[in-house]
Design a protein around this nucleic acid. Sequence first.
DNA 1: GATAATTTCGTGTACGTACCCGAATATAAG
DNA 2: CTTATATTCGGGTACGTACACGAAATTATC
Lengths: 353, 353
Amino acid sequence: MKKESEELVGVKEIARRANVSIATVDRVLHDRPGVSLKTKEKIQQIIKELNYQPNIVARTLASRKKLKFAIIIPASSEETSYWKAPLDGVLQAEQELRQYGISVEKYLFDQNNRKTFVKQSATLLQQKPDGILLAPMFVEESNQFMQQCREQSIPVVFINSDLPGQSGLAYFGPDLYQSGYLSAHLISYLVRPSDSILMLHITRELEMDHHLLRKEEGFRAYWQQQGYTHELITLHIGQTDTETIRHHISRQLKNSSIRVLFVTNSRVAAVAKVLEELDRTDLLLIGYDFLEDSIAYLKKNVIDFLICQKPQEQAYLGMMALYDKLVLNQPVKSVHFMPIDIITRENHLFYNN
Amino acid sequence: MKKESEELVGVKEIARRANVSIATVDRVLHDRPGVSLKTKEKIQQIIKELNYQPNIVARTLASRKKLKFAIIIPASSEETSYWKAPLDGVLQAEQELRQYGISVEKYLFDQNNRKTFVKQSATLLQQKPDGILLAPMFVEESNQFMQQCREQSIPVVFINSDLPGQSGLAYFGPDLYQSGYLSAHLISYLVRPSDSILMLHITRELEMDHHLLRKEEGFRAYWQQQGYTHELITLHIGQTDTETIRHHISRQLKNSSIRVLFVTNSRVAAVAKVLEELDRTDLLLIGYDFLEDSIAYLKKNVIDFLICQKPQEQAYLGMMALYDKLVLNQPVKSVHFMPIDIITRENHLFYNN
DNA sequence: GATAATTTCGTGTACGTACCCGAATATAAG
DNA sequence: CTTATATTCGGGTACGTACACGAAATTATC
């Protein structure tokens, strides 16, 4: 009963009740000028009373304005195909949003070269998009970029990592600290009191250390809270080639008490390769991200666990947040931590990246 | 360039090219009678050439038909609040689908009383819904229900468990076998060679054994493949009250080699309660589902892992599958296994049920 | 070959909202 | 009080599709 009446209210009914035309109601709805204060208030009153909900379908159809979104994220490289997943998420969102007259322009940069980011971000801004999805890999450059976006009042959504102190529209990504904390818990089940743990940060870009160190923090926090006394070796490897990694690892493994290797990013596949070559697949190996290479090693039991945080969904939801904000005019929650998923040999087939 | 031209094609353009009216194109699009074979083929040809994509927004707005969906699932009970999550998923879908003129009627039954299912399903069918979401708890009764749906050609989507041999539109739920298999893997990390494992099926309804036994199958398969020789005790508890559970468990725990308890459904919280009372929180406890009670014990470290398969999403996606099929006329994949999520003390905060 | 029955097709309106354009009214300027 | 200017409003069309209704063309019937 009540529902019925609620369903049927449209601008027409409001106009009838207020003794005005549809156009005037529309002006009030969109806060456009040309309405006297008196009638405006009367109409707003009626809108409230009827609990009017605009028909999004009709609105979309009638609306002429074609929005333009832009994304700027790292390109998927030979080094890691991680960024393929977020791009897929963007593509999926684009597919769905096309219906609503939204186009998406894509700008990719090299995550090992901050100049490419600066260049791409400049070209992006020339296109004057209505909303931006940003993976802020380079803190300083991203901050400058944000400054310009603010001047042009373009809303920006962050994915993958946050930009502290910046007022983006929203953040979709992992809680890095908790992620490390969880890894520690997982590993605590796997080690015997006398075992040592080798934590590996494998990255060329010092910039990224911010990520990895945050994970390490979480890890150490757990370890300390539990009062564990296992030997915990941290190693930073600045080169990502197999050679270098093997060199470092085989040296470390002379310490025979090492039983668990924890790689703080997607380079875990490279470590797996080395372990396989060294015939040390008996060691427990834990790393990040649902990449093809890693999955292969997961299947072969070289990698034991992968931790993953839905990279595709991060991007997809980020795009949708822009849509919610700019089209539906809905409020958007500013922080969305992704689930921390644990992938094993058994459940990987069912994982939706 | 190419995109532009693709965007702009509508029925109007097709009609122009075919030298017919919009209405005729519409008839072909909907395969309605009243078009000569010759013109029909010509129009279909043009549609293909232009790769015409109907404008869903306009279609929805113009379409008068109001679809009615119905769901029939167990009610959330004091015994387990599991079914609250699927209902939430339904509610969320309802919210989104309301825009498109779709209403949802909800029929809940008592999962301990098959007569309530029969009764509710009969009332449901009288409403002649256009699509149905079904949790087929009672195999025989569900089969009969499906028979009627088939006669009335109403598409049915299954959630939570499949109905083997029935031709539903789709299934959204766990792969029970793999779920048990994964649990086994997880547990294999936790046990020492001399430990015993206690597997608990706690349920009043024999019917449900189908679920639980399938999980046990998966579990045993892993154990056998690995050649493990741990003692594996299986116990079926037919009462769900704490009293009975405590009785059984304390008796089993006289076997001091038991170190891991694996509860094959959401009743794990009851076991946790017992373990806490018996002051045996040192034991490892693994169970199913993301319920409030269980989470509390997870936080207190009484429960170590929960395995969860997105009950809310099952229902949500199931509803959307009906929409895809009936409104968008899109093909629907017939089996959708949910991810097998592992919940711990650390990641539970970020889990989206 | 005329009429009836049937098939095939086009015209026009509706869905609910956006927004252009010009009319009506109110206010200011002379 | 007239004319000019600004303000406030309503009529009407468009968005792309669905579908009722009736007109035209075809085929069947005698």
